[in-house]
Computed example of a mutant assay.
Amino acid sequence: MDRPADLITAAVELLRHDDQDGFDRCVAKLAAQDGDDQGWARRVDRELTGMLTRLLGTLWRNGWQPADVVRLVERRRDRTHAEVVSELIARELRGYASVPDRWAPYLESVPPAPLREPRLLTLTRSLELLQTLTAFPRLDRLGPLPGENRPARPARRSTADGKTLSRVRALLAKAESTSFEAEAETFTAAAQRLMAKHSIDRALLDAHAGAAHDGPSGIRIGLDAPYEQAKATLLSVVADANRCRAVWHDDLGFVTVLGFETDLDAVELLFTSLLVQADTAIVRAGTKKHGSGQSRRRSFRESFLQAFTGRIGERLEAAAAETVEAEAASRGTDLVPVLAARTAEVDQAVAAMFPELTRSRVRGAYDSEGWAAGRAAADQARLAVRDQVRS
């Protein structure tokens, strides 16, 4: 009699080679209920769950993080497969004494409501998930693994960090809720200035700590269709404005952002908010058509996002530069060497992680009205908002 492990391995291999008939035969054997062996189903489930759990541990060592795994499973399969892997991740992570800060939300994964599904369907989904996970490529590690001991240093998050992030979130929530582009830009610029000031505080603190400070780390941010390249470009300009660097992996659907923790927080918050603001402005612009009546929705929206991105990048850079100038004057300190040193550390980290990195220009359809509308949406507000970000 075939062992569960042998059948599972065979099924995954058949699935990998698109042999649907052979795969179905394997699944049928795994789902068979043998009256002389009532424990067969339990052995199959135990073996399959064990393989998936061990594979997750391998993925962590290969540079993957929970958010990346869930996102790519949904991208390559569907939401149901992503829910299954989320619950498996939660169970796997509970076996460690500690997990990295950004992994903690996945400890609280809520299992999907039990459904009375045919066993063939349940097994098929688990085997498909196993085959999908085994095809994940190796990535560079962006931080500690679960269970790793941490250096005896101050906690990454302080009370001041939490207060700053709360204020930034409040500003960005106002930007997202207003129906006026000018107000949205004002609140977004205020958030950028606040995060820039906080970054300067952290940079000076790390400079004082000398060699003991943590170096650059990284996060991955997933991008959903449509207009993924345009969104990746927007993320890149937000990263540049905050002394981070972004690398787009178009085959995997995410961007790796490298930088110091405080700056990574700024990038993640600002980018997420700007996407909401851009989407709102695009919807408000309405449906566009050619003179013939044919829709030009895609070209209009791509051009809108490209123009929006270009102008937002300019304004974020200007807001950050103004903050550096103001902080240098108020502190009586030349901040350029300190900040330049941090930027150099980030660039070195990028060069080490992506030695063959190349730059390419994003190309897309051009629509003059979309370009003008995107530029206007990013260019209407005054940035005289220092009272809003004053400590």
Rank of each mutant, 00 (worst) to 15 (best):
P111I: 09
R245P: 01
G210P: 14
S217C: 09
A207Q: 14
E183F: 03
R193A: 10
T159L: 11
V276F: 04
F300R: 13
G57V: 04
A232N: 01
L205Y: 03
E314V: 09
T80M: 07
L52H: 01
A307D: 06
T159Y: 13
R296A: 04
T287G: 01
R157C: 00
M51R: 15
A225E: 14
S199L: 02
Q229C: 00
L223V: 13
R54E: 12
T188G: 14
L56V: 05
R102N: 08
R75Y: 06
A90D: 07
Q306M: 10
S98F: 02
S98H: 06
L142P: 08
R359A: 14
E148C: 05
A82E: 04
L130K: 07
E325Y: 00
A190R: 04
D379V: 02
D101P: 01
V27Q: 15
D19W: 10
P114I: 02
G215M: 03
W103D: 14
A203E: 05
M353G: 02
D214W: 00
V247W: 05
R46Q: 11
L133C: 02
S179R: 15
Q20E: 12
Y227T: 04
A230V: 02
G293Y: 03
L115F: 02
V267C: 07
R382N: 12
L234G: 08
L357H: 06
S273G: 11
G63T: 04
G332D: 08
A239P: 05
E302Y: 14
T256A: 10
E92Q: 13
Q65V: 09
A372C: 01
G143I: 04
A182I: 07
W103H: 13
A384E: 13
S179Y: 11
D224V: 11
R169L: 10
G215H: 08
A135T: 05
F304D: 09
Q38T: 10
G253A: 09
K163Q: 08
L204P: 02
Y227L: 15
G50A: 12
S273Q: 14
G35D: 00
V276N: 06
R315G: 02
V283T: 04
H198W: 12
R331L: 14
S166C: 00
T124Y: 07
A319N: 10
H290Q: 12
K288M: 07
H208A: 14
K163C: 01
G162E: 09
Q38W: 01
D45Y: 01
F260D: 01
E128T: 06
V73Q: 00
A190N: 03
E148L: 05
F180V: 14
R390C: 02
S179E: 15
G162S: 12
L258R: 13
M1G: 10
A239M: 03
V276D: 12
A329V: 12
V362Y: 00
L205H: 07
R119Y: 08
G147Q: 09
R311C: 01
L258W: 05
D224Y: 05
A160N: 03
A184F: 03
S199E: 09
T323H: 03
F180A: 13
Q38E: 14
A378R: 04
R169E: 14
